[in-house]
């Protein structure tokens, strides 16, 4: 069991590394691999002195301030959405569940739309407002959904699902209303709702990445409980799982993880729905493997998709969410057919 675990995880990590390298080097500006390695080495103290600068300053800026942060952000967002999707699918025992089903996404979209569509400033003392507002919106919808779903101290999954769907509908309606009433920012809002890693605030990466990693680690500690709950909530009680506790915690942790990813990248679709299925087809439904493997697959998938979306019609870009959907759908169908 743990052998299988090691093989798949190592293989995945290898592929992930390759896709990160691809993501860093492919783009509208060519970066010579050798100089790139030197640039990276020159960031390390002590080594700095022995490396002579043979490249232009703007190339270094592209590498260090755009390419690398963007690729890492794609990795974090892809991993977060995939883990979140896998957990929601098991928790709700619904293969169609994805991170956006339980309201977090529409809350975030509303938060982002309010800033984009009104004359609020995009920066406030250097702090980017759109992601902050999106995150606040996501939290608001999380509390609303939780409050609506809670009955007699319990969190019935079908009520949770309905609450999420209803919050999604209501918030989308408010967004549409805002769009109708506003005369600016329409295309920005649409691009945000499609999801893009372009123009994202890369300076948020040092905050988002560690928090997302910690959230994923905490979620991973529930793997055994999730296995039992995925089989049946009733059985889980008989097997000693504190189901109500586990459900509440996972809903909150998972929503936070989604909120974090969405606030920096918009609503990139498909990753959170399809990657968990692909991962499950490869390693099976045991969450002790499924969660880390989904994270790795999600990272690979979004890094590669994002690389494509900024190089197909370079120097212009397609929203990342469009590419994930166009790539993800057929790829998933292929896997589904092949399995049968």
């Amino acid at each position: 069991m743990s052998n299988k675990f090691r093989i798949y995880i190592l293989l995945g990590l290898g592929l992930l590394l390759l896709s990160l390298v691809a993501g860093i080097f492919i783009g509208s500006v060519y970066i010579e691999p050798l100089s790139a390695v030197k640039m990276l080495l020159s960031k390390i103290p002590y080594l700095k002195e022995s490396i002579s600068v043979t490249w232009e300053g703007n190339i270094e800026d592209i590498l260090m301030k755009v390419r690398i942060p963007r690729v890492l952000l794609a990795l974090i967002v892809g991993a977060s959405l995939s883990v979140s999707g896998a957990v929601f699918q098991s928790l709700l025992r619904n293969p169609l569940a994805d991170p956006y089903l339980l309201g977090v996404s529409s809350g975030a979209a509303l938060g982002a739309a309010i800033v984009i569509l009104t004359s609020l400033p995009f920066f406030f003392f250097g702090v980017p407002i759109v992601p902050l507002s999106a995150f606040a919106g996501a939290l608001l919808s999380m509390f609303l959904v939780y409050g609506l779903a809670k009955t007699k101290g319990k969190l019935p999954m079908h009520t949770l699902l309905l609450s999420g769907v209803i919050i999604n509908f209501s918030f989308s309606a408010v967004i549409m209303l805002l769009i109708t009433l506003s005369n600016k920012g329409l295309s920005e809002v649409i691009v945000w709702m499609m999801g893009t890693l372009n123009n994202t605030n890369y300076e948020l990466l040092p905050y988002v990445a560690p928090v997302a990693l910690v959230l994923m680690a905490v979620i991973y500690m529930f793997s055994n409980d999730l296995n039992v709950i995925a089989v049946g909530e009733e059985s889980a009680v008989y097997l000693g799982v504190k189901t109500e506790n586990v459900k509440k915690w996972l809903f909150i942790l998972n929503s936070l993880l989604t909120a974090l990813a969405v606030s920096v990248s918009g609503l990139i679709g498909f990753v959170g729905l399809i990657i968990p299925h692909i991962a499950r087809m490869i390693v099976g439904p045991d969450h002790r493997i499924l969660i880390p493997f989904s994270a790795i697959c999600g990272g690979i998938f979004l890094v590669l998709s994002d690389t494509l979306c900024r190089s197909i019609i370079s120097p212009a870009e397609i929203p990342t969410g469009v590419v994930t959907a166009i790539l993800g759908g057929p790829f998933f169908l292929y896997l589904l057919k092949r399995k049968k």
Binding site: R93, N94, N227, A230, V231, G284, P285, D286
Partner: peptide, 14 residues
């Protein structure tokens, strides 16, 4: 319990 509807493809061993 009486029959439970299981969606995910866990093996019998699991």
């Amino acid at each position: 319990p009486q029959d439970e509807n299981i969606i995910f493809p866990f093996t019998v061993f699991e």
